[in-house]
Design a protein around this nucleic acid. Structure first.
Lengths: 238, 238
DNA sequence: ACACCAATGGACCATATGGTCCCTTTATTC
DNA sequence: GAATAAAGGGACCATATGGTCCATTGGTGT
């Protein structure tokens, strides 16, 4: 049986689809650790154990492959974030999301940064179609954050006047900036601190006082946020 | 007369220094708009009107050139920020700094991102020496932000318990993340919003009530911050 | 003036890289 | 089971790219 390839109308067998997926997965990994520019097609062929003709059978060229990698990586990130954020409707839930990201990044000492963010900054000024794709994914990701905030608002935790979209943008900015600083410093700490500042801001808007072991409303320093509670060792950067 | 080249002990005449500077400047520009990886040595030669032997006379290879570009760009950024932040000791002064950065970025619709941040994310996982250099520059930049916050603290505007370093890290993260989102969206708005969220957090810590037309202590939304006062049209992204 | 070395021009090279072509093998369809 | 199309292997190509070399010019110091 053959299915129809959505992107170019060519017929695709199960085997072909598997090969295609193998190529994209290998390329995604390589581009994540080496960067897009530093990843050659030969690298991809070697890593995926596929011949050159197959690559060109499935992709028009490197640009098309990069486009596919963006979709693939983006899909994974969105799926992961949907799982992590889709049903969060409390501040502690948001903090657990933060902890997971920080801990995960700590495993690599910040290396490689955000899989989507790295692609974004390398591709944005080179390939406009790719840039738009990444931008769209960021928007979707940010929408998931906005969803959490909206649930907080609907539940009466955040005041109705709070601008959900702007808070989500700020949180996203802090997250991406944190990834970048951590990548450059090879240390998660700045990432943790950046996100914590955004979360502290959001918490400062809360209508309902948090539970005792949580943030004190109007607290003055950030330090508290970085050494407290269900804190994983990750924040210490090791 | 010949001066001594600090980096390799070779003597350098004024002419040589000028050529070297021309190469670095051209490379810095190209790498800023095209990225490091996409900039070839031939590009640099063409843009600087210099022969290949000269490039290799002054630099051991592309890596060394990249290192020099980092120093050059870093120096410019630090100088600019020292001018902009060195004597700031008020919240309105900090806002003016924000406005200048946002407006400047708005001119290019966010393209190219932060000159240092772009280098950072492209170089961090490739060349460890370069990564450390960029990291050092970020630290220096962040130190300038910390200086402003310390002055605010010393002046009694920020409470003594506020953790200056963490606030500076958070502000830096918001700035860099904002640059990145703006670059990807080709729109300054997310950059403005990110920084505004960080500034709003800092303002929420203020001991002294800001002047009437400024932030209301404990204000609930960000929107106010993005449409108010000495706001340049830049924030609207066009 | 002379020795010396930096500065410069630019040809030349090895190789890496994206991309093309063609032939063989495997699967699908009727 | 023949016809057809997809999947796969891999040689081959043009060119881009980082890097080398050497000869020539120009400036500096004594």
């Amino acid at each position: 049986m053959t299915t129809l390839d959505s992107r170019n109308g060519r017929r695709l067998t199960a085997r072909g689809e598997k090969t295609r997926a193998r190529i994209v997965a290998a390329a995604a990994d390589l581009m994540n650790v080496q960067g897009v520019g530093a990843t050659t097609l030969d690298d991809v062929l070697l890593a995926s154990g596929v011949s050159k003709s197959q690559l060109y059978h499935h992709f028009a060229g490197k640009d098309a492959l990069v486009r596919a990698v963006i979709d693939h990586v983006g899909g994974r990130v969105i799926e992961r974030e949907r799982d992590a954020l889709g049903h969060v409707s409390t501040i502690p839930g948001l903090r657990r999301w933060r902890d997971a990201l920080v801990q995960n990044n700590a495993l690599r000492h910040g290396a490689y940064g955000c899989s989507l963010g790295s692609l974004a900054s390398e591709v944005s000024d080179q390939d406009d179609a790719a840039r738009r794709a990444v931008s769209q994914l960021f928007t979707e990701w940010q929408g998931l954050l906005a969803g959490v905030l909206r649930r907080l608002q609907d539940g009466g935790t955040l005041p109705p006047e709070a601008s959900i979209d702007q808070l989500a943008t700020g949180l996203m900015g802090a997250l991406q900036g944190g990834y970048m600083l951590a990548q450059t410093a090879r240390d998660v700490t700045p990432m943790a601190t950046s996100i914590d500042m955004a979360l502290a801001h959001i918490e400062s808007l809360l209508l309902i006082e948090p539970t005792p072991d949580q943030a004190t409303h109007g607290a003055v320093i950030l330090a508290r946020d970085s050494v407290r509670a269900h804190q994983s060792p990750s924040a210490s950067g090791s």
